[in-house]
């Protein structure tokens, strides 16, 4: 998981507060028709959030990983080929870059930058267990906590099982280098033991959950505390309202 365990003010916020903040920044970036100038202000605000939250270096690495391929494809494809291209900006050995396409690429990259940095501010500072507790508490349902927690927890041991199966099949001389048709026929022996085994195991897993009181009714308590405050509750309301009203103002203007 991406969560980084270190003290910081973002870490102390309730998971929902950060989620609503993410929602608001997405709404602002995509649904309010911001100009490049306002988008850069919004992007700067996100940057400030990340720096003050103490997650700058990890976020920077992630942003580079996500944006490098995007920029590499986005700039030439739109700069050269965007159907709206009319105004030449510069040419390089007969390859012509156009203003419209480049602007479109820049704007898209900035919008993505806002959403992705706001997402990172959430995922790097929120322990999944806190999110699960908050969601279970708000929904009154254990199931949703299970659906979020189980995959996160099981993923690692499942990956180990995949490696075991791969080695076993390789030892049995499974075709992994032949022509494409042969490789397709190798899919079955690789996937079937893993998939059928996991599906058959569902019976015991669900019995184990039921006998632990998964479906029990009545009030529940939680060992884990996810601190919340009136201020956060109010700001969530405010941000949600803004996330709805600002796009509407833009569309009906």
């Amino acid at each position: 998981m991406l969560f980084i365990d270190r003290p910081g003010w973002l870490h102390k916020l309730h998971p929902f507060t950060k989620l609503v903040l993410l929602l608001l920044s997405a709404a602002l970036a995509y649904l309010t028709g911001l100009s490049i100038g306002s988008l850069s202000l919004l992007l700067a605000a996100c940057l400030l959030l990340i720096i003050s939250g103490g997650i700058f270096s990890v976020s920077a690495k992630m942003v580079i990983r996500i944006f490098l391929p995007l920029i590499l494809f986005m700039v030439p494809i739109h700069g050269l080929l965007n159907p709206a291209n009319t105004t030449e900006i510069f040419s390089f050995h007969g390859i012509v870059f156009y203003r419209e396409g480049l602007f479109f690429a820049l704007k898209t990259l900035m919008q993505l930058g806002v959403v992705i940095s706001a997402s990172l501010a959430f995922v790097f500072t929120t322990h999944p267990a806190d999110l699960i507790t908050a969601v279970s508490h708000a929904s009154g349902s254990i199931s949703i906590g299970y659906l979020l927690g189980f995959p996160l927890l099981l993923l690692e041991s499942m990956r180990e099982r995949v490696v075991t199966i791969q080695n076993a099949q390789r030892a049995r001389g499974l075709e992994i280098d032949g022509n494409i048709f042969r490789r397709f026929t190798s899919l079955g022996p690789l996937l079937f033991p893993l998939l059928i085994g996991s599906i058959v195991g569902i019976e015991q897993r669900s019995i184990a959950l039921e006998v632990r009181g998964f479906k029990i009714h009545g009030p529940k308590t939680s060992l884990r505390l996810v601190p919340d405050s009136l201020l956060q509750k109010l700001s969530r309301r405010l941000m949600l309202t803004l996330a709805v009203i600002l796009p509407m103002l833009h569309f009906f203007r």
Partner: peptide, 27 residues
């Protein structure tokens, strides 16, 4: 039950919280 890892709830990140689950569900 028989298989050890099939009985882990998968809802809790630590051994301590795993044991607590049944008690939390019962309030």
């Amino acid at each position: 039950l028989q298989k050890p890892d099939n009985q882990i709830s998968g809802m809790r990140f630590t051994v301590f919280e795993e044991v607590a689950l049944g008690l939390e569900n019962r309030g």
